[in-house]
Computed example of a mutant assay.
Amino acid sequence: MKRFALSGLAVILVAAATVIAGEVELEGVKCVVAPKPATEGKSADYKEGKVYFCCGGCAGKFASNPDKFAVNANQQLVATKQYEQKACPMSGGDVNPEITSTVAGTKVAFCCNGCKSKVDSAEDEASALKIVFNDKAFKKAFAKAEAK
């Protein structure tokens, strides 16, 4: 009986997640754990939003150590428009909408060319991601998007 009740609860949770996930555009969005397309069927709550995975295995890896995947999860929250940029990720200052770079497919604005050059001169995309979407920069520059 207990197993039946837990199975029913799991079905309800997946159905609810699917309804909520339907509001998020996942085209071009990668799994937080693996470099594969994210799907609506696999997600987890994260920072007042949802992050999406390619499979249950990746969802399990994230659940066991979300801090390990925080940079990718933060970027995905912005890519899925659940969070929006409010300030420069480097300085925390006002952004100049004309000074931008694209980091892992996500457009990011900066306050000045000095901040932009720190990201543009990163060794590779993974390094640029860490600069812009680490927890400290994310908290400084991004906020939950207001419901429209």
Rank of each mutant, 00 (worst) to 15 (best):
F110Y: 15
K86R: 11
T102R: 15
N96I: 01
G92W: 08
D94K: 13
T100D: 14
N113K: 13
T106H: 05
T106A: 08
A104V: 06
V119E: 09
D120P: 09
V119D: 11
F110Q: 08
T102E: 15
C112K: 00
Q85K: 03
A87Q: 13
K107N: 05
C115Q: 05
E98L: 12
T102S: 15
V119N: 06
V108A: 00
V119I: 07
V95Y: 02
S91P: 10
I99G: 01
G105P: 10
S91Q: 06
V119W: 11
N96V: 02
V108T: 04
K107R: 08
T106G: 05
K107P: 02
K86S: 07
A109G: 04
C88D: 10
C112Y: 01
G114P: 07
K107Y: 02
A109S: 12
P97N: 15
S91H: 11
F110M: 03
A87C: 11
N96Q: 01
S117E: 08
A104C: 11
Q85L: 03
N96W: 02
M90L: 10
F110W: 01
C115V: 02
P97F: 14
D120H: 05
G93R: 12
F110I: 04
V103I: 04
G93A: 14
D120V: 08
S91W: 03
M90T: 14
P97W: 13
F110K: 02
S117T: 08
S117V: 04
P89N: 04
P97G: 12
V95H: 06
E98C: 10
F110H: 04
V119G: 05
E98S: 14
G92F: 06
D94A: 14
A104N: 10
A87I: 11
C112L: 01
K86W: 01
S101T: 06
N96P: 02
I99M: 03
P97S: 13
V95N: 07
A109D: 02
M90C: 06
A87W: 14
K86Y: 04
P89G: 00
A104G: 14
C88M: 05
Q85V: 07
D120N: 10
G105S: 10
C111G: 12
